[in-house]
Protein backbone atom coordinates (compact mmCIF):
# COMPACT_ATOMS: atom_id res chain seq x y z
CA UNK A 1 0.00 0.00 0.00
CA UNK A 2 2.97 2.29 0.07
CA UNK A 3 3.63 4.51 -2.84
CA UNK A 4 5.62 7.55 -3.64
CA UNK A 5 3.86 10.37 -1.93
CA UNK A 6 4.09 13.40 -4.12
CA UNK A 7 2.30 16.51 -3.11
CA UNK A 8 -0.16 17.55 -5.77
CA UNK A 9 0.42 20.99 -7.14
CA UNK A 10 -2.35 22.95 -5.51
CA UNK A 11 -2.59 25.06 -8.62
CA UNK A 12 -3.52 22.02 -10.64
CA UNK A 13 -6.54 21.31 -8.45
CA UNK A 14 -8.92 22.80 -10.94
CA UNK A 15 -8.40 22.12 -14.60
CA UNK A 16 -8.26 25.31 -16.61
CA UNK A 17 -11.11 25.89 -18.99
CA UNK A 18 -10.35 24.01 -22.13
CA UNK A 19 -9.58 26.82 -24.52
CA UNK A 20 -12.30 28.69 -26.29
CA UNK A 21 -12.99 25.89 -28.70
CA UNK A 22 -16.34 25.36 -27.02
CA UNK A 23 -18.04 26.30 -30.28
CA UNK A 24 -18.84 22.70 -31.11
CA UNK A 25 -20.19 22.08 -27.62
CA UNK A 26 -22.38 25.13 -27.94
CA UNK A 27 -23.68 24.06 -31.33
CA UNK A 28 -24.53 20.61 -29.97
CA UNK A 29 -26.27 22.13 -26.98
CA UNK A 30 -28.26 24.54 -29.14
CA UNK A 31 -29.20 21.78 -31.58
CA UNK A 32 -30.51 19.72 -28.69
CA UNK A 33 -32.58 22.62 -27.35
CA UNK A 34 -33.97 23.34 -30.85
CA UNK A 35 -34.84 19.67 -31.26
CA UNK A 36 -36.71 19.76 -27.99
CA UNK A 37 -38.49 22.93 -29.10
CA UNK A 38 -39.63 21.25 -32.33
CA UNK A 39 -40.80 18.24 -30.33
CA UNK A 40 -42.79 20.52 -28.04
CA UNK A 41 -44.32 22.26 -31.02
CA UNK A 42 -45.31 18.91 -32.50
CA UNK A 43 -47.00 17.87 -29.25
CA UNK A 44 -48.88 21.16 -29.27
CA UNK A 45 -50.03 20.47 -32.83
CA UNK A 46 -51.45 17.11 -31.76
CA UNK A 47 -53.32 18.70 -28.88
CA UNK A 48 -54.61 21.58 -31.00
CA UNK A 49 -55.77 19.24 -33.72
CA UNK A 50 -57.47 16.90 -31.29
CA UNK A 51 -59.25 19.76 -29.57
CA UNK A 52 -60.45 21.51 -32.72
CA UNK A 53 -61.03 18.97 -35.43
CA UNK A 54 -61.04 15.44 -34.14
CA UNK A 55 -63.49 15.56 -31.27
CA UNK A 56 -67.08 15.53 -32.43
CA UNK A 57 -68.21 16.63 -35.86
CA UNK A 58 -66.85 20.06 -36.74
CA UNK A 59 -69.32 20.50 -39.59
CA UNK A 60 -72.27 19.95 -37.30
CA UNK A 61 -70.75 22.37 -34.83
CA UNK A 62 -70.30 24.99 -37.51
CA UNK A 63 -73.70 24.71 -39.09
CA UNK A 64 -75.68 24.07 -35.95
CA UNK A 65 -79.39 23.99 -36.79
CA UNK A 66 -78.66 24.42 -40.51
CA UNK A 67 -76.90 21.03 -40.57
CA UNK A 68 -79.98 19.16 -41.76
CA UNK A 69 -81.51 21.84 -43.95
CA UNK A 70 -78.55 23.35 -45.82
CA UNK A 71 -77.19 20.24 -47.54
CA UNK A 72 -75.15 22.12 -50.15
CA UNK A 73 -73.22 24.11 -47.55
CA UNK A 74 -72.76 20.93 -45.51
CA UNK A 75 -71.22 19.04 -48.38
CA UNK A 76 -68.98 21.95 -49.25
CA UNK A 77 -67.69 22.13 -45.66
CA UNK A 78 -67.24 18.39 -45.46
CA UNK A 79 -65.15 18.46 -48.61
CA UNK A 80 -63.06 21.39 -47.32
CA UNK A 81 -62.41 19.82 -43.93
CA UNK A 82 -61.96 16.35 -45.42
CA UNK A 83 -64.43 14.83 -42.95
CA UNK A 84 -64.66 11.64 -44.95
CA UNK A 85 -60.98 10.81 -44.49
CA UNK A 86 -59.58 9.07 -41.44
CA UNK A 87 -58.44 11.27 -38.60
CA UNK A 88 -54.80 10.35 -39.16
CA UNK A 89 -54.92 11.34 -42.82
CA UNK A 90 -56.54 14.62 -41.92
CA UNK A 91 -53.91 15.31 -39.27
CA UNK A 92 -51.05 14.43 -41.61
CA UNK A 93 -52.53 16.62 -44.34
CA UNK A 94 -52.93 19.52 -41.91
CA UNK A 95 -49.45 19.10 -40.45
CA UNK A 96 -47.97 18.84 -43.95
CA UNK A 97 -49.69 22.12 -44.79
CA UNK A 98 -48.29 23.77 -41.65
CA UNK A 99 -44.77 22.66 -42.43
CA UNK A 100 -44.95 23.96 -45.99
CA UNK A 101 -46.50 27.22 -44.86
CA UNK A 102 -50.05 26.45 -46.00
CA UNK A 103 -52.38 27.22 -43.13
CA UNK A 104 -55.52 26.33 -45.05
CA UNK A 105 -58.53 28.39 -45.96
CA UNK A 106 -60.78 30.29 -43.60
CA UNK A 107 -64.28 28.87 -43.37
CA UNK A 108 -65.81 32.23 -42.63
CA UNK A 109 -64.80 34.09 -45.77
CA UNK A 110 -62.92 31.56 -47.91
CA UNK A 111 -59.70 33.60 -47.81
CA UNK A 112 -56.33 31.90 -47.18
CA UNK A 113 -55.72 31.83 -43.42
CA UNK A 114 -52.15 33.10 -43.66
CA UNK A 115 -53.22 36.26 -45.46
CA UNK A 116 -55.65 37.13 -42.68
CA UNK A 117 -53.45 36.13 -39.80
CA UNK A 118 -50.14 37.65 -40.84
CA UNK A 119 -51.21 41.25 -40.27
CA UNK A 120 -52.71 40.69 -36.84
CA UNK A 121 -49.69 38.67 -35.73
CA UNK A 122 -47.39 41.52 -36.71
CA UNK A 123 -49.69 44.02 -34.99
CA UNK A 124 -49.60 42.06 -31.75
CA UNK A 125 -45.85 41.53 -31.91
CA UNK A 126 -45.29 45.26 -32.38
CA UNK A 127 -47.53 46.02 -29.42
CA UNK A 128 -45.76 43.49 -27.22
CA UNK A 129 -42.26 44.54 -28.24
CA UNK A 130 -43.09 48.20 -27.61
CA UNK A 131 -44.48 47.28 -24.20
CA UNK A 132 -41.36 45.23 -23.47
CA UNK A 133 -39.05 48.03 -24.54
CA UNK A 134 -40.72 50.34 -22.05
CA UNK A 135 -41.32 47.75 -19.35
CA UNK A 136 -37.86 46.18 -19.00
CA UNK A 137 -35.85 49.30 -18.14
CA UNK A 138 -38.73 50.61 -16.04
CA UNK A 139 -39.06 47.40 -14.01
CA UNK A 140 -35.31 47.13 -13.42
CA UNK A 141 -35.07 50.81 -12.51
CA UNK A 142 -37.88 50.55 -10.00
CA UNK A 143 -36.37 47.38 -8.56
CA UNK A 144 -32.98 49.05 -8.12
CA UNK A 145 -34.46 52.11 -6.43
CA UNK A 146 -36.55 49.89 -4.21
CA UNK A 147 -33.64 47.66 -3.26
CA UNK A 148 -31.48 50.68 -2.55
CA UNK A 149 -34.00 51.91 0.03
CA UNK A 150 -34.72 48.46 1.34
CA UNK A 151 -37.40 48.36 4.02
CA UNK A 152 -37.33 52.11 4.37
CA UNK A 153 -40.09 54.52 3.43
CA UNK A 154 -39.54 54.79 -0.37
CA UNK A 155 -39.29 51.01 -0.66
CA UNK A 156 -42.51 50.47 1.27
CA UNK A 157 -44.36 53.02 -0.83
CA UNK A 158 -43.11 51.51 -4.11
CA UNK A 159 -43.94 47.98 -3.04
CA UNK A 160 -47.44 48.94 -1.95
CA UNK A 161 -48.14 50.66 -5.25
CA UNK A 162 -46.75 47.75 -7.25
CA UNK A 163 -48.82 45.23 -5.33
CA UNK A 164 -51.95 47.32 -5.87
CA UNK A 165 -51.24 47.57 -9.60
CA UNK A 166 -50.59 43.83 -9.82
CA UNK A 167 -53.94 43.23 -8.16
CA UNK A 168 -55.97 45.36 -10.58
CA UNK A 169 -57.15 43.51 -13.73
CA UNK A 170 -55.60 44.98 -16.86
CA UNK A 171 -58.90 46.11 -18.37
CA UNK A 172 -59.60 48.17 -15.27
CA UNK A 173 -56.21 49.85 -15.65
CA UNK A 174 -57.08 50.36 -19.29
CA UNK A 175 -60.41 52.00 -18.50
CA UNK A 176 -58.78 54.22 -15.89
CA UNK A 177 -56.10 55.30 -18.35
CA UNK A 178 -58.74 56.03 -20.99
CA UNK A 179 -60.75 58.07 -18.51
CA UNK A 180 -57.65 59.94 -17.41
CA UNK A 181 -55.96 60.63 -20.72
CA UNK A 182 -58.62 60.61 -23.40
CA UNK A 183 -62.09 61.26 -22.12
CA UNK A 184 -62.86 62.64 -18.67
CA UNK A 185 -59.77 64.52 -17.45
CA UNK A 186 -57.38 65.19 -20.29
CA UNK A 187 -57.95 64.75 -23.96
CA UNK A 188 -54.50 63.85 -25.16
CA UNK A 189 -54.62 60.37 -26.66
CA UNK A 190 -57.33 58.66 -28.70
CA UNK A 191 -59.29 56.04 -26.80
CA UNK A 192 -59.42 53.55 -29.66
CA UNK A 193 -57.08 52.45 -32.37
CA UNK A 194 -58.30 53.63 -35.73
CA UNK A 195 -58.51 50.40 -37.62
CA UNK A 196 -58.73 50.80 -41.35
CA UNK A 197 -58.06 47.61 -43.31
CA UNK A 198 -55.11 49.10 -45.15
CA UNK A 199 -53.32 51.13 -42.47
CA UNK A 200 -51.20 49.80 -39.62
CA UNK A 201 -52.05 50.79 -36.03
CA UNK A 202 -48.69 52.51 -35.61
CA UNK A 203 -49.41 54.84 -38.52
CA UNK A 204 -51.08 56.91 -35.81
CA UNK A 205 -48.47 56.68 -33.05
CA UNK A 206 -50.57 58.50 -30.46
CA UNK A 207 -53.09 55.68 -30.72
CA UNK A 208 -50.48 53.21 -29.53
CA UNK A 209 -49.73 55.03 -26.29
CA UNK A 210 -52.63 53.87 -24.17
CA UNK A 211 -52.56 50.16 -25.17
CA UNK A 212 -48.80 50.04 -24.55
CA UNK A 213 -49.20 51.87 -21.25
CA UNK A 214 -51.89 49.45 -20.13
CA UNK A 215 -49.70 46.43 -20.86
CA UNK A 216 -46.71 48.04 -19.15
CA UNK A 217 -48.73 48.71 -16.03
CA UNK A 218 -50.05 45.16 -16.10
CA UNK A 219 -46.66 43.47 -16.35
CA UNK A 220 -44.13 45.75 -14.62
CA UNK A 221 -45.14 44.90 -11.03
CA UNK A 222 -44.35 41.19 -11.39
CA UNK A 223 -40.98 41.70 -13.02
CA UNK A 224 -40.04 44.47 -10.65
CA UNK A 225 -40.92 42.52 -7.53
CA UNK A 226 -38.95 39.46 -8.61
CA UNK A 227 -35.89 41.52 -9.53
CA UNK A 228 -36.07 43.41 -6.24
CA UNK A 229 -36.23 40.20 -4.25
CA UNK A 230 -33.22 38.76 -6.06
CA UNK A 231 -31.34 42.04 -5.72
CA UNK A 232 -31.89 42.09 -1.97
CA UNK A 233 -30.47 38.60 -1.73
CA UNK A 234 -27.44 39.56 -3.82
CA UNK A 235 -26.88 42.76 -1.84
CA UNK A 236 -26.51 40.62 1.28
CA UNK A 237 -23.84 38.48 -0.34
CA UNK A 238 -20.20 38.44 0.66
CA UNK A 239 -18.98 39.68 -2.69
CA UNK A 240 -21.12 42.80 -2.50
CA UNK A 241 -19.81 43.43 1.00
CA UNK A 242 -16.27 42.96 -0.28
CA UNK A 243 -16.93 45.36 -3.16
CA UNK A 244 -18.10 47.98 -0.66
CA UNK A 245 -15.15 47.37 1.61
CA UNK A 246 -12.89 47.65 -1.41
CA UNK A 247 -14.14 51.19 -1.83
CA UNK A 248 -16.32 50.77 -4.92
CA UNK A 249 -18.92 53.57 -5.12
CA UNK A 250 -22.45 52.44 -4.36
CA UNK A 251 -23.94 53.05 -7.84
CA UNK A 252 -21.21 50.87 -9.36
CA UNK A 253 -21.77 48.20 -6.71
CA UNK A 254 -25.46 48.21 -7.59
CA UNK A 255 -24.98 48.17 -11.37
CA UNK A 256 -21.98 45.94 -11.86
CA UNK A 257 -21.79 43.70 -8.82
CA UNK A 258 -25.41 43.31 -7.80
CA UNK A 259 -27.58 43.71 -10.89
CA UNK A 260 -25.48 41.40 -13.03
CA UNK A 261 -26.12 38.58 -10.57
CA UNK A 262 -29.79 39.39 -10.09
CA UNK A 263 -30.74 39.57 -13.74
CA UNK A 264 -31.44 35.92 -14.50
CA UNK A 265 -34.68 35.42 -12.54
CA UNK A 266 -35.80 38.72 -14.08
CA UNK A 267 -35.23 37.35 -17.57
CA UNK A 268 -37.28 34.26 -16.82
CA UNK A 269 -40.23 36.31 -15.55
CA UNK A 270 -39.99 38.70 -18.48
CA UNK A 271 -40.13 35.74 -20.87
CA UNK A 272 -43.21 34.31 -19.21
CA UNK A 273 -44.91 37.69 -19.21
CA UNK A 274 -44.06 38.47 -22.83
CA UNK A 275 -45.29 35.08 -23.97
CA UNK A 276 -48.48 35.68 -22.05
CA UNK A 277 -48.87 39.06 -23.76
CA UNK A 278 -48.18 37.55 -27.18
CA UNK A 279 -50.94 35.05 -26.52
CA UNK A 280 -53.19 38.00 -27.05
CA UNK A 281 -54.40 40.12 -24.25
CA UNK A 282 -57.97 39.87 -25.47
CA UNK A 283 -59.42 42.32 -23.02
CA UNK A 284 -56.86 45.01 -23.76
CA UNK A 285 -57.17 44.52 -27.51
CA UNK A 286 -60.94 44.62 -27.29
CA UNK A 287 -60.92 47.69 -25.08
CA UNK A 288 -58.81 49.67 -27.53
CA UNK A 289 -60.20 47.91 -30.66
CA UNK A 290 -56.65 46.95 -31.44
CA UNK A 291 -56.48 44.59 -34.44
CA UNK A 292 -54.40 41.89 -32.73
CA UNK A 293 -54.21 38.15 -32.36
CA UNK A 294 -56.36 37.93 -29.25
CA UNK A 295 -59.37 39.59 -30.81
CA UNK A 296 -59.04 37.57 -33.98
CA UNK A 297 -58.83 34.34 -32.03
CA UNK A 298 -61.99 35.14 -30.10
CA UNK A 299 -63.81 36.06 -33.32
CA UNK A 300 -62.66 32.86 -34.99
CA UNK A 301 -63.80 30.71 -32.11
CA UNK A 302 -67.16 32.43 -32.20
CA UNK A 303 -67.43 31.73 -35.97
CA UNK A 304 -66.31 28.11 -35.58
CA UNK A 305 -63.60 28.95 -38.09
CA UNK A 306 -61.56 25.82 -37.39
CA UNK A 307 -58.53 26.46 -39.67
CA UNK A 308 -58.13 29.99 -38.25
CA UNK A 309 -58.28 28.75 -34.66
CA UNK A 310 -55.73 26.06 -35.43
CA UNK A 311 -53.34 28.45 -37.12
CA UNK A 312 -53.57 31.08 -34.37
CA UNK A 313 -53.10 28.47 -31.66
CA UNK A 314 -49.99 27.16 -33.35
CA UNK A 315 -48.56 30.65 -33.79
CA UNK A 316 -49.16 31.50 -30.14
CA UNK A 317 -47.53 28.23 -29.08
CA UNK A 318 -44.58 28.99 -31.36
CA UNK A 319 -44.11 32.40 -29.75
CA UNK A 320 -44.19 30.85 -26.28
CA UNK A 321 -41.53 28.36 -27.20
CA UNK A 322 -39.27 30.84 -28.97
CA UNK A 323 -39.48 33.40 -26.17
CA UNK A 324 -38.65 30.82 -23.53
CA UNK A 325 -35.81 29.42 -25.58
CA UNK A 326 -34.35 32.89 -25.94
CA UNK A 327 -34.73 33.44 -22.21
CA UNK A 328 -32.93 30.18 -21.43
CA UNK A 329 -30.07 31.01 -23.77
CA UNK A 330 -29.75 34.50 -22.26
CA UNK A 331 -29.85 33.09 -18.73
CA UNK A 332 -27.02 30.71 -19.52
CA UNK A 333 -24.97 33.37 -21.26
CA UNK A 334 -25.32 35.56 -18.18
CA UNK A 335 -24.39 32.80 -15.70
CA UNK A 336 -20.68 32.09 -16.10
CA UNK A 337 -20.89 28.82 -14.19
CA UNK A 338 -23.53 27.43 -16.54
CA UNK A 339 -21.83 28.92 -19.57
CA UNK A 340 -18.43 27.40 -18.86
CA UNK A 341 -20.09 24.08 -17.98
CA UNK A 342 -21.37 23.86 -21.57
CA UNK A 343 -18.20 24.87 -23.35
CA UNK A 344 -15.98 22.40 -21.49
Amino acid sequence: MTQVATLPDPLAEVAPPRGRSGGAAWAAWLARRLGLAVLTLWLVSVLVFLATAALGDPVRAILGRDYDTNVGRREQLEAQLGVGDSIVTRYVDWLGGLVTGDFGTSLANQQPVWQQVSDTVVNTLVLVLLAAAVMIPLAFGIAMISAHFRRRRPDTVIQTILLALAGVPEFVTGILLVALFSTSVFNIFPAVTIASPTARPWDTPEGMVLPVATLVVAVTPYVSRIVRATLLEVLDSDYVELARLKGIPEPVVMRKHALLNAIVPGIQVIALQLAWLAGGVVLVETLFSYPGVGRQLVDSVRNHDVPMVQALSMIIAGVYIVVNLVADVLSILLTPRARTAISS
Binding site: D238, Y239, L260
Partner: peptide, 12 residues
Protein backbone atom coordinates in the same frame (compact mmCIF):
# COMPACT_ATOMS: atom_id res chain seq x y z
CA UNK B 1 -12.99 38.36 3.38
CA UNK B 2 -13.92 35.24 5.28
CA UNK B 3 -15.39 32.79 2.83
CA UNK B 4 -13.18 32.55 -0.22
CA UNK B 5 -15.80 30.89 -2.38
CA UNK B 6 -18.50 33.52 -1.95
CA UNK B 7 -16.37 36.63 -1.72
CA UNK B 8 -15.52 37.05 -5.37
CA UNK B 9 -18.23 38.11 -7.75
CA UNK B 10 -19.30 34.98 -9.64
CA UNK B 11 -20.09 36.79 -12.87
CA UNK B 12 -17.02 39.00 -13.29
Amino acid sequence: PQDPASALNPSI
